Simulated scan of single mutants.
Amino acid sequence: MKSALINFRPVKCTIMVAFLFVTGIFIAQEKGDQVEKLAMKKANNYVYEGNKLYDEDFIKAEMAYRKAISEQPSTVIGNYNLGNSYYEKGNYEEALFRQQLAIKHATSKLEKHRAYHNIGNILMQNKKCQEAVEAYKNALRNDPSDDETRYNLGLAKICAEQQKDQQDQNEDDKKDQDQNEENKDQQQDQQDKKDQEGDNKDDKKDQNEEEKKEGEDQKDESGEPKDEKQDKGKEGDQEPQEQQQPKPQPGQLSPQQVKSLLEAMNNQEQKVQEKINEEKQKGIKVKSEKDW
């Protein structure tokens, strides 16, 4: 009997502990719900305060919305209204961030529809028309009956198409500009090449003229090279050790023959002169000139 009681107690104890644990969870959950409800109530009060101050004092309205988000970060209406206030102020980057937070915590299609619609408006202000198209489409998925969203979607599509055409035109213009730059570079290269060839020709021409001028400076008035004439003069100053006799040409007398002939003529003339002198001594008149 004792053994049975001993075995039974742990079971009773275990059941009691489990009961107390579950009871604690319910109590904590109830307290948590109360805290969350209190925070939500405070957040809603701050949102209401911000809405009243929205048109009168933007700075105070912004502070009220921030207090609401501080009390309840997941408040959809707090982020949504704070995003709208930034939109009116022209701070589109912060407005977009707050609308995205509103979508993140939204639990109803109506909340998502409003946030997506406002995101589309923000993107249109930032000239991001294609992204705005997608935002308006998401808004219509959550509320297909909103004609204002459908109208904005049509404007966004037109804007996106114009931007695409402009982008294509810019790309074409850029290609044309790049092609023109490339053609200019090629023309410049060709011109540089021609200029270089012209410079080379001019240099060669100048070199030829300079060589020609140097050649003319080396010639005398008769056109003969000065060096060659000087060499000839030097050769003329030197007496040859052996003077070669010129060879007679066919039909001409050799120098030796001419010399012999002159000696014969001189001897003959001497004989005639001696004969004339003898006859003069004898008194015979002799004609010294021919009768014609």
Rank of each mutant, 00 (worst) to 15 (best):
K12V: 14
E269L: 10
G78A: 15
Y54V: 05
Q163P: 01
G120D: 04
Q167R: 12
L253N: 15
Q99K: 06
F26P: 00
P225Y: 04
A139D: 00
K247L: 11
E235I: 03
K109I: 00
N121A: 08
S260E: 15
K290A: 09
Y86K: 06
Q167P: 01
N126T: 09
F97V: 13
E182W: 02
A4D: 07
D165S: 13
A264F: 06
N126K: 15
S3E: 12
I6N: 13
D33N: 14
P246A: 10
K290V: 09
E62A: 09
I15E: 07
D237L: 13
E274G: 08
D220L: 01
Q34S: 14
E148K: 10
Y151T: 09
H113M: 08
L110Y: 07
C13G: 05
L140Y: 01
I158M: 09
I15L: 15
K164T: 09
H117A: 12
P144V: 07
Q190C: 03
D192Y: 09
Y136D: 04
D237W: 03
D178S: 14
A4V: 10
G50W: 01
L5T: 09
E181T: 15
Q270Y: 05
Q230H: 04
K104C: 04
K184Y: 08
H105L: 00
S74V: 01
G78S: 12
E209C: 00
P73Q: 06
G198N: 13
Y54P: 04
A264L: 08
N267H: 03
D231I: 02
E94L: 15
A264D: 14
L110K: 12
V272L: 10
E111M: 08
D173N: 14
F26T: 08
V35F: 07
K213M: 02
I6L: 15
D231Q: 08
K2Q: 11
Q100V: 08
N51S: 08
E49Q: 15
Q100P: 02
Q72W: 00
K285V: 11
K2G: 10
G120Y: 02
F8D: 09
K164E: 11
L110V: 10
Q256M: 02
K89A: 08
Q243D: 11
I59E: 15
Q179C: 06
P255C: 06
Q257K: 15
N45A: 15
Q166C: 04
Q245S: 13
Q72Y: 05
Y92H: 07
Q270M: 11
H105N: 02
E221T: 00
K204N: 13
Q245I: 10
N126S: 12
K41L: 11
M40W: 00
Q177E: 13
G233E: 08
I15C: 11
D189I: 07
S3Q: 13
K174I: 06
L155Y: 02
A39H: 08
Y86C: 04
A264V: 05
Q257T: 14
P73Y: 03
R141W: 05
K164W: 03
A160G: 02
Q130H: 09
T23A: 15
S288Y: 06
P246W: 03
N142F: 11
